[in-house]
């Protein structure tokens, strides 16, 4: 019970890896640029190149391949989902017919589209998985304030709430156990299970808001929002290497698209 049910927002990477150390804002910007460029195409070639790039830079972020596999396995499940949905609902059923059974009409065109979509989902999601696996929430908030000019009150308020995540995870278990102690369980009845889930979730929300109210008071007591301009204790430098990381992401994503265009496989999302 304890192992599987832990909830945590700690980074999982080896600290000190060359790219993991980059400014968090630079990392997030690079990931967003890379992902969004790839969203623009529906072909299999550009995402395949992108995935190769992503896997190649993984060691520079200090992430072991096994760790990535564990974080990203739900993506594989959704890959199967995409295949099933496409087999049933594809708009383009050109190509050689491989299987024809009533509504299920599988053609080479369908399979090619599926391959493209699955690679695209993986390629678009992986940069985010990599960045957030290597980024400490405190550093992210600091960098958002110092380098991205995010409003400090909001970034720090959100950060303080993120600190409650593991506590709320434990609280969920306490509430569930308390219900059992009161003679409430669902057995195998799905409707009862849903009701129990809803009432547990409600109790969690109430407790969370109560904590949030107390936390806000404690923050005010220490001069948060007193109107004095804040100073910063931890500097988040944004150096040339950070700019290079973003530029590199732009260049690599552009290269993947260019190859796809040159090979004639490029299919824009809109158009």
């Amino acid at each position: 019970m304890t192992g599987r049910s832990m909830i945590s927002i700690e980074p999982v990477a080896v600290p000190g890896a060359p790219l993991a150390r980059r400014n968090p804002v630079a990392k997030v910007a690079a990931a967003l640029v890379f992902s969004f460029t790839l969203l623009a195409t529906l072909d299999p070639v550009a995402p395949a190149i992108a995935i190769a790039v992503e896997l190649a830079v993984l060691p520079l972020f200090g992430i072991r391949y096994g760790v990535l596999a564990r974080r990203a396995w739900p993506l594989l499940v959704s890959a199967v989902g995409i295949l099933v949905t496409l087999v049933l609902f594809a708009s383009d059923r050109s190509g050689r017919v491989l299987l024809d059974a009533g509504p299920v009409l599988v053609t080479t065109g369908v399979l090619l589209t599926a391959l493209g979509l699955i690679l695209r989902v993986l390629a678009v999601a992986l940069p985010g998985v990599i960045v957030f696996a290597t980024t400490d929430p405190t550093d992210l908030a600091d960098a958002l304030i110092q380098n991205a000019k995010a409003p400090a009150r909001f970034a720090i308020g959100a950060l303080a709430a993120f600190r409650l995540v593991p506590l709320l995870g434990q609280e969920w278990q306490m509430i569930s156990m308390a219900r059992r102690a009161r003679g409430v369980d669902a057995g195998r009845n799905p409707a009862a299970k849903l009701r129990l889930f809803a009432s547990t979730a409600f109790a969690l929300l109430v407790g969370a808001i109560r904590r949030g109210t107390r936390l806000a008071v404690a923050m005010d007591a220490r001069g948060f929002d007193a109107g004095t301009p804040r100073t910063v204790a931890r500097r988040q430098p944004f150096g040339p290497a950070d700019g290079l990381l973003i530029a590199g992401a732009v260049a690599l994503a552009g290269a993947a698209l260019t190859v796809s265009v040159l090979l004639g496989t490029f299919r824009p999302l809109l158009g």
Partner: peptide, 27 residues
Amino acid sequence: ETQLVMARSGDDVAFGLENRGVPAGEI
């Protein structure tokens, strides 16, 4: 539990000093 704001102990003590605008070198 509800009066600690930051994830690291030192950062938490520094939190109030930052809010009061204490110069970075003194924090």
